[in-house]
Every structure is written in C-alpha cells, then in structure tokens.
C-alpha cells in the first residue's frame, strides 16, 4: 500500500453540481419553497390551505403525467386543454345515466381524440406540435358544437363528490392523481411499453430497426394523454359543479408542459421523470399560491413563473450537451 493523497468527492466540482441539480433540484426547491412559505405565513400549513392547493393541483398533475409520456417520445400534446373542454361538454349529456357512465363516456372521447392525434403523428408523420395544435383548435369547436356556448350547472351527487370529497383528510382528486402518478411511474420503469416509449424518444430510427412497434407505441401514448386529460376534465366539472367548455381547461396544455419541464424531463425525449413531474406540478402550484397570498401583483407572479421555466429548461439542457 503506497500512501496516496486521499481523493474525496469534490463537492464543488461543477459538473457534479450540475448533475445533482438536475437530479434533485426540483425536490430541493420544493422543500425550500414549502419551508419559506410556512415561515412567512403560519396559516400556510393549515389543513384548509393544503386542501385547497391539492384540489387545484390534482387536475394539472393528471394532465402533466400524460404530457410527460408524450414528451418522453420527443413529442408534445397541445390538445389536452381542448380535451378537458370536450369532457366538460360531454359529461352533462350523460350525467342522467349516473356519474360513472358519464365519466366513462368522457374518457372514451379523450381516447378517441388521442388516437386521432397519435395517428397523425405516427402514421402521417405530422410534427406533434402541428398535429396536436390542429386537434386543440378542432376539439374546442367540437366541444362547442356539443354543448353550445354556455356553462351548465351539474348537480349529480356522484360527480360532485368526485370533485370535492376527501378521504383521510386528503381530496379524492388528489388520491386519484397520486395513484395515477404511481401507475405511470411503474408503466415507465417496469413495462415493455414504458421502456419502448423511452427508447423511441431517444432514437426512433434505431428503435424501428430493433423491431419495436414504433407506431403502436406512439398512438398509445397519445391515447393515454387524452384519457388522462379527459379524466382531469371530469374532475374539474365535478369540483366546479358546472360544465363550462368555453373556459375550462384553458391554458392547461401550457401548465402541464411547465410541470413536466420544471420536473426535469427534457423536451428532446428519451427520458421521463414521473416523480419530477409530480414535484414540478406541486412547485408551480405552490409558488403561484404563495405569491398570490402575499399580495404580489399577478404580473410579477407571471414574471417569476417565466424565470423558473427558463431556468428549468436551461438546467435540463446541460444534461443533453454534457
């Protein structure tokens, strides 16, 4: 044994720090934000406030989970907000048959619109952003055709309890979103489909040459995104006790993309961070809430959000270029 200088881990190593930031940054930021918010305002941690935050974040998280899968394939799904509107327009039509059936019909509509978008992407090879943009515009039109232009009150007790009941002090919506997150994580990590999805996002040509069912996987991914968005739409209708396709789901696609990006999933595909997406959605929800509760003007809130998005994309980019 020759005595050598002990080379311990150099915590100040830039590359290492970058990697740590990429891997755990969003979680650390979430914890810090939580602590700061609690210190600034004692009532932040009150059960009532936490419940409100969870109610608000649950639908966004559902949509973001689907979005994370789509982004993992090097795509994007801009139609999710419109799918929410579509769900909101369909639910009142079938609510007479009971909430389960109405929600199921909404999910079918979500699946069909996802299949349309996925087919455009996988078979017609239209760029995802264009395919889902056209779908976004078209579906809003469809929703209006079905529903007309006015909000309709919904009073079905089943749907209302989906939107506002809780279990063990936590909103049902949050439970559902949480279960969906766990299932999505398992899907990505443990299943053939999940691994193929990531492989296709990383190198579509190589995946095709390796015999992967590229088109089938792509269509399925968009179907999943549509179904999750439709479910989120049903939740929103239940929570608000009204179906308002003209206003529900507006900007949801952007919120979902933000959550995914802040959670560290690169837009270049080949990687899906489900837990990161959960943290990203929570973080964006909380930062908006904290700023609003401290009477920061909306315009400043938006500036802060913009800065966060830029930083998150910048940080995740460094991984790509190594």
């Amino acid at each position: 044994m020759t005595p050598t200088t002990w080379a311990g881990p150099d915590l100040l190593d830039r590359a290492r720090l970058t990697r740590l930031l990429q891997a755990y940054g969003v979680y650390a930021a979430l914890v810090v934000l939580f602590v700061v918010a609690a210190v600034l305002d004692g009532s932040f941690l009150s059960a009532g406030n936490v419940r409100i935050q969870l109610f608000q974040v649950a639908p966004t998280l559902m949509v973001a989970l689907g979005m994370a899968l789509v982004i993992g394939t090097e795509g994007v799904d801009l139609s999710v907000g419109a799918v929410i509107a579509l769900a909101a327009s369909v639910v009142p039509l079938y609510i007479g048959y009971g909430a389960p059936l109405a929600v199921l019909v909404a999910l079918v509509f979500g699946a069909v619109s996802g299949a349309v978008g996925g087919t455009m992407v996988a078979f017609a090879r239209i760029q995802p952003i264009v395919a889902t943009l056209s779908l976004m515009i078209g579906l809003r039109g469809v929703a209006e055709l079905i529903n007309g232009n006015s909000a309709k009150p919904v009073s079905d007790s089943g749907l209302l309890s989906l939107g506002s009941d809780g279990f063990a002090g936590v909103p049902l919506m949050a439970w559902i979103a949480g279960v969906c997150a766990v299932l999505t994580a398992l899907l990505v990590r443990r299943t053939t489909f999940g691994r193929q999805l990531v492989a296709i996002g990383d190198n579509r040509q190589a995946s095709k040459l390796a015999g992967l069912p590229v088109r089938r996987v792509l269509v399925t991914v968009y179907v999943l995104s549509g179904v999750l968005a439709a479910f989120a739409g049903a939740m929103i209708v239940g929570h608000g006790a009204e179906a308002d396709p003209a206003n529900q789901g507006l900007n949801m696609e952007l919120n979902a993309i933000t959550a995914v990006v802040v959670g560290g999933t690169p837009l270049t595909g080949g990687r899906v961070r489900v837990l990161g997406t959960v943290a990203g959605a929570l973080f964006m929800q909380l930062i908006t809430a904290v700023l609003t509760q401290h009477n920061v003007h909306t315009s400043y809130t938006q500036l802060v959000e913009a800065a966060i998005i830029c930083f998150a994309v910048y940080a995740s980019q460094e991984r790509g270029t190594r």
């Binding site: 990531v198 040509q205 190589a206 040459l209 080949g270």
Partner: peptide, 19 residues
C-alpha cells in the same frame, strides 16, 4: 443514428429488442 440509444443505459441498450 441507427444503433445506440445515447441517453439510455447499457442495460437498456442491450435488452431493447428482447424486452
């Protein structure tokens, strides 16, 4: 362009077609 999945692990790259 036709072979490796650059961002994935050795494990993923080997088992790609076998999944």
């Amino acid at each position: 362009t036709e072979g490796i999945l650059p961002n994935l692990s050795v494990r993923e790259n080997i088992s790609l077609a076998l999944l």
